[in-house]
Design a protein around this nucleic acid. Structure first.
Length: 270
DNA sequence: ATGGTGGATTATCCA
């Protein structure tokens, strides 16, 4: 069984590429981020005609997460419990469309689009950190209730956990950029302390291995990217991982997302 | 090389 995560940066703008990749990649489950649409604009047929069931959570032109599966899709959950809401300027806080969960062939899959902190002193940064803290609290409960639970927390984490996960750590430090700050890295490491493992890194060692390249500044041809998309697996799921890769080819050419798909191969169920 | 990122929406916002 192959599971994947991919921030597509608009499903409508990327429909042809997504369909082509589904056919080529042969994945059984894909967690999608940044669909950038509501249900009424979601390309349901694209998945159906290729044999995938799909669940979507999208509230506006922003964010939007989905899970597509050809090995079953049950117990869909939109937002995790007590998911922190965001609202500024006196507006009512809303739980944004950043998390959807579903069970696919025995694996509890979460498609996650972690909030972007924007800058170290922006109000989005405490929102991001709180969001991760609440999620990790649930992740700890899930494992504690069932140590054999197979859980995949996958998506765009908007964190580069190690210095080698950006092309030039000094550039990030000097400019005071997000994604590499200690509070963000602490929030990521907290999931590892809970027992979750980044199951892609051991199959795709760095340096110079990334999942995202900014559209500007010729970042992709210059090989100046960031590793910010991760599959964090519970212990029982991590034990099934036999391979993983980052599909850098998909970042090439006209009409590519700024993120590459990340694919994890699992051994067959016991 | 007279360009310069791209998407959703349409003058900005978001990443």
């Amino acid at each position: 069984m192959k599971i994947a995560t991919w921030n597509v940066n608009s499903l409508r703008a990327r429909a042809d590429r997504v369909e082509g990749w589904l056919l080529r990649s042969d994945v059984d489950v894909v967690a999608i981020q940044e669909t950038k649409c509501k249900d009424e604009n979601f390309p349901w047929e694209l998945f159906e005609r290729n044999g995938y069931e799909v669940a979507h959570f999208g509230l506006s032109q922003w964010n939007g997460v989905a899970i597509a599966s050809r090995v079953g899709l049950t117990d869909v959950e939109r937002t995790f419990p007590d998911q922190p809401a965001f609202g500024k300027g006196g507006k009512d806080p809303v739980q944004e469309a950043r998390a959807i969960g579903a069970t696919c062939n025995g694996v509890r899959v979460w498609s996650l689009y972690v909030p972007n902190g924007r800058s170290l002193d922006d109000e989005h940064m405490p929102y991001k950190l709180d969001w991760l803290k609440v999620l990790n609290g649930h992740a700890a409960e899930w494992i504690s209730q069932d140590p054999q639970a197979q859980i995949a927390l996958m998506g765009d984490w908007n964190i580069a956990p190690q210095d080698e996960d950006v092309w030039d750590i000094d550039y990030f430090r000097t400019a005071g950029l997000t994604h590499v700050s200690e509070p963000e890295r602490d929030a990521f490491r907290a999931f590892e302390a809970t027992g979750f493992e980044d199951v892609v890194r051991r199959h795709t060692p760095g340096p110079g291995v990334y999942t995202y390249w900014d559209y500007t500044q010729l970042r992709f041809p210059r090989r100046e990217g960031m590793r910010i998309d991760f599959v964090l697996a519970s212990p029982a799921l991590a034990a099934r991982v036999v391979n993983a890769h980052i599909d850098r080819e998909e970042r090439k050419g006209k009409g590519a997302s700024d993120h590459a798909p990340v694919v994890v191969e699992l051994s067959e169920d016991e």
